[in-house]
Design a protein around this nucleic acid. Structure first.
Length: 559
RNA sequence: UGGGGAGUCGCCAAGUGGUAAGGCAGCGGCCUUUGGAGCCGCCACUCGGAGGUUCGAAUCCUCCCUCCCCAGCCA
């Protein structure tokens, strides 16, 4: 090896895969991403998507997209469509390998009959409450149902009649016959099928019995010859059942292995689908793609890039210990990508009028400004300059502190790509508020450099007042005030009321005119912004993706 | 007090018996036509704890402690 770089070490799943190659257990990696279409995908799913599709890419295998649609009461086509859109947007392609657990309903049913014939499953007619009572507790074994000893014939007959719709919902269930005394509660004769008269978004009313996850999942994996079935930690105790299903159905074409990893958690947000659903349904946010949500579609609307999210997933790693990732790491990932790819532009959020007294009123001159100092190939754009400009209110202080080095009376600063200007005074209204800042400019500093080499301490962004585009800018802050919103009890009580600030009339340089949704910019000195999906020609709307790192704010708050 | 997992820097995470990678955050400094970016430096004598084995232990053994998951006809 001539390289001095240390290769990234393998995560524990990669180690298993490489070991399987070494021992000849597998010659190919086949993974799957198995969402239930009952909500939108969130950043936690993104980790799983990157893991599953990433492993397939890394080892030249494939990754299936399989909808785990075994509970029609909660599932909808809209969610399935959104999920496909999000996976594609993240940059992954399942090609022809789009599957549904519901594709296997008939096979799943036939396998269930096989289990019955093998005396490995039985129809139980206890009520749900009775089943719960019979299950025992964590420390006491369960009790066998009085229906557990039904004959194979009777079980087969009952199961067929369940399928035929002869019984009410809940009248019977099909259970695996395993061990009511197992220390693993999941092995105490788990339910395999329940009667549920719900219209399924794909199979309509073809079925009135639906398989449970624990039964459908391992079989679906096996039917697709999944080699490594990756899921989250809470399924660890279900693994014996996963293996039980596969081991008792010898006609299955393969024996996949379930491997569990720790799900992603992010601070200052909630991640459970149930809670995200509530935020949407109770209108605490404006839909699943509200830019404050941790959903993939929200991050997209917020201006995040697929590259940034993939890099984030890579950064957080894969292991088995519970973790809470600092949202600052996610923000780092976007800044990192956008810094290299987003064109710079000038926008003033909170405008303060500047009048350059020695600049001719009728004149407009155009300056070239770099689109991206990080990337010369991004070229330059033309920005108009005139006598009246907007600058940020924050960039002027009548009585500056010692560490403040922006514009102040008597002080000279550079206007980015334009001229040096010196503040000569202010105009105030009757209330004593500053309405205008008066300046003079130095014609010799055209373009932003002084022939005598003097360097102002500050460079300000600005927009020519007469040329500015009026636009709406939405500033987002974290949706929750606490690092762990669910810890205090009611996570809704922790919602940050100031998580959205709308600036109805920000001033934008004219080069941005006509930008289409999802176009990303850096507003110089402010942050990264993206054209929102609600933008129109007459009413441009921008979302703040993330601020720039702001060392001044640290200095300022330290005092 | 059953079973299954996990404990390495504030947050992640390498490490697989040979003397604690890296990233984020933080803190200094340099540089800068973004107080951005970039660059440089600092940031675990110690790996949940206590014993033991060994020339040598985060890695092996024993005991203990803490945290997470499981009692849906959800996934």
């Amino acid at each position: 090896m001539s390289t001095t770089e240390t290769p990234r070490s393998l995560n524990f799943i990669e180690e298993i895969i490489e070991d399987d190659f070494k021992t000849g257990k597998h010659t190919e990696v086949v993974t799957r991403f198995p969402p239930e279409p009952n909500g939108y995908l969130h950043i936690g799913h993104a980790k799983s998507i990157c893991l599953n599709f990433g492993l397939a890419l890394e080892y030249g295998g494939r990754c299936h997209l399989r909808f785990d649609d075994t509970n029609p009461a909660k599932e909808e086509q809209e969610y399935a469509d959104a999920i496909k859109r999000d996976v594609h947007w993240l940059g992954f392609d399942w090609q022809e390998h789009l599957y549904h657990a519901s594709d296997y309903f008939q096979q799943l049913y036939d396998f269930a009959e096989h289990l019955i014939r093998s005396d490995k499953a039985y129809v139980d007619s206890l009520t749900a409450e009775e089943i719960r009572e019979h299950r025992g507790t964590l420390t006491e074994p369960g009790r066998e149902s009085r229906f557990r000893t039904r004959s194979v014939e009777e079980n087969l007959d009952l199961f067929r009649r369940m399928r035929a719709g002869e019984f009410e919902d809940g009248a019977h269930v099909l259970r695996a016959k395993i061990d009511m005394a197992s220390p693993n509660i999941n092995m105490r004769d788990p339910v395999l099928y329940r009667i549920k008269r719900e219209t399924h978004h794909r199979t309509g009313d073809d079925w009135c019995i639906y398989p449970m996850y624990d039964y459908a999942h391992p079989i679906s994996d096996a039917l697709e010859s999944i080699s490594h079935s990756l899921c989250t930690l809470e399924f660890e105790a279900h693994r014996p059942l996963y293996d039980w299903c596969i081991d008792n159905l010898p006609m299955l074409p393969s024996k996949p292995r379930q491997i569990e990893f720790a799900r992603l958690n992010l601070n200052y947000t909630v991640m459970s689908k149930r809670k995200l659903l509530r935020l949407v349904q109770e209108k605490h946010v404006n839909g699943w793609d509200d830019p404050r949500m941790p959903t993939i579609s929200a991050y997209r609307r917020r201006g995040y890039t697929p590259e940034a999210i993939r890099a984030f997933a890579e950064e957080v790693g894969v292991a088995k210990r519970e973790n809470v990732i600092d949202v600052a790491l996610l923000e780092h990932s976007v800044r990192n990508h956008l810094n290299k790819t987003a064109n710079r532009v000038m926008a003033v959020l909170r405008p303060l009028k500047v009048v350059i007294e020695n600049y001719p009123a009728i004149e407009t001159e155009w300056f070239d400004s770099p689109n991206n100092p990080e990337d010369a190939s991004a070229g330059t754009r033309r920005v108009p300059f005139s006598r009246e400009l907007w600058i940020e209110q924050d960039d002027f202080m009548e009585e500056p502190s010692k560490k403040y080095f922006r514009l102040a009376p008597g002080r000279e600063v550079r206007l980015r790509s334009a001229y040096f200007v010196t503040c000569t005074g202010v105009v105030k209204n009757d209330a004593g508020e500053i309405t205008e800042v008066l300046c003079t400019y130095d014609p010799a500093t055209r373009g932003g450099d002084a022939p005598d080499g003097r360097k102002p301490k500050a460079t300000l962004h600005w927009v020519s007042a007469g040329d500015a585009i009026d636009c709406e800018v939405r500033l987002y802050d974290r949706l929750f005030r606490s690092e762990f919103p669910e810890d205090a009890g009611d996570f809704l009580a922790d919602i940050n009321k100031d998580s959205l600030e709308v600036i109805p009339h920000a001033k934008l340089e004219p080069s941005v005119k006509g930008a289409t949704p999802e176009t990303r910019y850096q507003f110089e000195r402010l942050g990264y912004f993206v054209v929102d999906s609600e933008t129109t020609g007459e009413h441009p709307v921008f979302n703040r993706t993330v601020t720039l790192k702001d060392t001044w704010s640290k200095v300022a708050t330290k005092g």
